[in-house]
Design a protein around this nucleic acid. Structure first.
Length: 216
DNA sequence: ACCCAGGGTCATA
DNA sequence: TATGACCATGGG
């Protein structure tokens, strides 16, 4: 990794320490969590996943065996429960049809990404979450924090598109999945634990400007 | 009471 | 291709 992106990585790493993401017990839990966390606080997703576990429904077969109404009720705390229930079903149907992890593991990253994006309810960020944290492919997950931080630092234009910003990171970072995962985790952690609650806190290392993270 | 969170789809111009 | 409406809970 080189340049400003390396500098910021070290600053975030020094401030927050190692993250060891994604918080999940299995690769399937990563996939479900990636869908449930769309525009939703992770805390709410934890409740939904706990409900699925309690109902012994955290598997593709169990989810496909539920009615959408039952599924929606289980994931209610994660918000958008009606659309997300359909998205989970769409994903699980594709996953089972494709041969699940043991088969998908053999697909190239490009083929797998295209297939994921073809599932209704899986967009670029969700696909990259799954590619990185479930399949351990070296892709960078771009989120709202990434664009906000690096456009304000002047690294990229504020209106840069998802694919262009992903390309900037993947070109500069050039590492394995572990480093991509740590970087994304650090960006999210910086947003929700420090800058969100303490605008202008003096502990922030990003040019001493925690207001970088405050919504414009 | 108000604001937003680890997005994505669909209709419209 | 580019905006806008819509989805919905829980914590600050």
């Amino acid at each position: 990794m080189t340049g400003e992106l390396l500098t910021v990585y070290h600053q975030l790493r020094q401030q927050h320490g190692p993250q060891h993401w994604w918080p999940a017990e299995t690769v399937f839990e990563v996939m479900i969590g990636a869908i449930l966390t769309q525009n939703t606080a992770w805390r709410n997703v934890e409740h939904a996943i706990a409900n699925l576990k309690r109902a012994n429904s955290l598997s593709a077969a169990a989810i496909l065996n539920c009615s959408v109404e039952q599924l929606a009720e289980l994931i209610r705390p994660s918000g958008y429960f009606n659309v997300k229930a359909l998205r989970l079903r769409n994903y699980c149907q594709w996953y089972v049809d494709a041969g699940e992890f043991d088969e998908l593991q053999n697909w190239s990253t490009g083929t797998l990404r295209t297939a994921l994006l073809n599932v209704n309810g899986v967009g670029p960020e969700t696909a990259d979450d799954i590619l990185l944290y479930a399949f351990e492919r070296p892709v960078f997950v771009v989120d709202a924090y990434t664009r906000r931080i690096f456009s304000r630092l002047g690294t990229v234009d504020a209106g840069i598109g998802y694919e262009d910003l992903r390309s900037v990171f993947e070109t500069a970072v050039k590492g394995d999945a572990r480093i991509f995962g740590e970087y994304h985790a650090l960006i999210v952690m910086h947003g929700k634990d420090i800058c969100k609650t303490r605008p202008r806190c003096t502990e922030c290392i990003l040019q001493n400007q925690c207001d970088l993270m405050v919504t414009p």
